[in-house]
């Protein structure tokens, strides 16, 4: 029909009219967009009001402190204040990269995070899948409570439990090893044991709580999928592999990207509670290094430089992870 010359000619004056109408409508629409946003705000103001505390939190605790980051490039004196301290360029960063202990801490941070990710990330997924398969509700609730519990215990107490459990004289680990004729090992002074103990403790403490996200995702999978699978005669195993896991895959990937973004933020309070000079070799991470140099040693500017560098590395990691994920799985944070 569009090839009909008659149609074109007959449509001539009409087109002008149409264009005029369209422009007019657009103009009217543009004016009413403001109005519509206004209407929308009026209608949904409660939702926006709920956003305010989070935005305030972001501004006060994350954006405002960024002002202080400049001391990484300054010769900072607390009495002179941030603004009045003189600029010194990259001097603190030079010192940082000439410090073997910082490089070691950076290496330890990356290694421990990578191990933490490798061993720690799948555990909550397994847990969630396992909880999902438990049919006895009472048993399920009890088991869940037990695995959530360590999350609510203070790090100081967890560290106390770990120190006691790995004690060479009274610890349960060495007692069990003793049954098999193994000599007592003073685990917490052995550099080669620090990482397994630290990562294991982290998994034990957090895996249960982290599994909640996946349980929620599983709960969101449409039951009709399972029903039709049952009709088709699928086994539970097949349903897990073919339905549950593909359905929660976006959640898994989002969690993975977030996790990679936080890769350099090791729970260093736990490290401080567990490490010794004897285990610094494998245990000292960037944050504990900053703590010792900056807060105990009073070098705020130098510590700020180390912290800033840490943040830059984390930023690069999360950007990379997000890009890769966007390209291959079409799931991304933004």
């Amino acid at each position: 029909m569009s090839s009909d010359p008659d149609f074109i000619s007959s449509a001539g004056p009409k087109t002008e009219e149409l264009v005029f109408d369209a422009k007019e409508a657009q103009r009217r629409r543009r004016a009413s967009r403001m109005q519509r946003v206004g209407d929308h705000l009026k209608r949904e103001w409660q939702l926006y009001a709920m956003l305010i505390p989070t935005i305030l939190w972001l501004v006060i605790f994350l954006y405002k402190p960024m002002y202080g980051l400049q001391i990484a490039f300054k010769d900072y004196s607390i009495f002179r204040g941030v603004a009045a301290s003189p600029w010194i360029g990259f001097e603190h960063f030079e010192t940082l990269f000439n410090n073997d202990q910082f490089l070691r801490a950076l290496r330890n941070t990356l290694i421990m995070s990578a191990y933490g990710l490798l061993f720690g990330f799948p555990v909550p997924i397994f847990l969630a899948l396992m909880f999902n398969e438990i049919l006895n509700q009472k048993f399920k609730k009890t088991a869940q409570t037990i695995v959530y519990l360590p999350h609510f215990i203070s790090s100081v107490i967890i560290a106390g439990i770990v120190i006691t459990a790995f004690s060479p004289s009274a610890g349960i680990v060495n007692t069990i090893l003793g049954w098999f004729g193994v000599d007592a090992v003073y685990f917490l002074t052995k550099p080669e044991w620090f990482r397994p103990i630290f990562i294991g403790t982290g998994i034990w403490q957090e895996a249960g709580f982290q599994s909640i996200v996946y349980l929620a995702a599983i709960a969101g999978v449409s039951p009709t999928l399972y029903e039709s699978a049952v009709v088709d005669g699928a086994s539970r195993w097949q349903m897990m592999w073919k339905i549950t896991i593909p359905s929660i895959l976006p959640t898994i990937i989002i969690m993975l990207i977030i996790r990679i973004g936080n890769i350099l933020e090791i729970s260093f309070e736990m490290i401080i509670l567990l490490y010794q000079p004897a285990t610094y070799q494998t245990a000292d991470v960037v944050n504990t290094f900053i703590y010792r140099q900056g807060l105990q040693g009073g070098q705020y500017d130098f510590a700020a430089a180390a912290g800033l560098f840490n943040a830059v590395v984390a930023f690069i990691l999360v950007m990379t992870a997000n890009t890769i994920s966007k390209r291959y799985s079409r799931t991304s944070l933004w």
Binding site: T95, Q101, T189, P277, A278, Y280, R292, G297
Partner: peptide, 18 residues
């Protein structure tokens, strides 16, 4: 002092415990 000593002390204590 600030540039060198914190690292030196860390090293001293590491070796000492080892």
């Amino acid at each position: 002092y600030d540039r060198y000593f914190p690292s030196i002390q860390t090293y001293m204590l590491e070796r000492q415990q080892a």
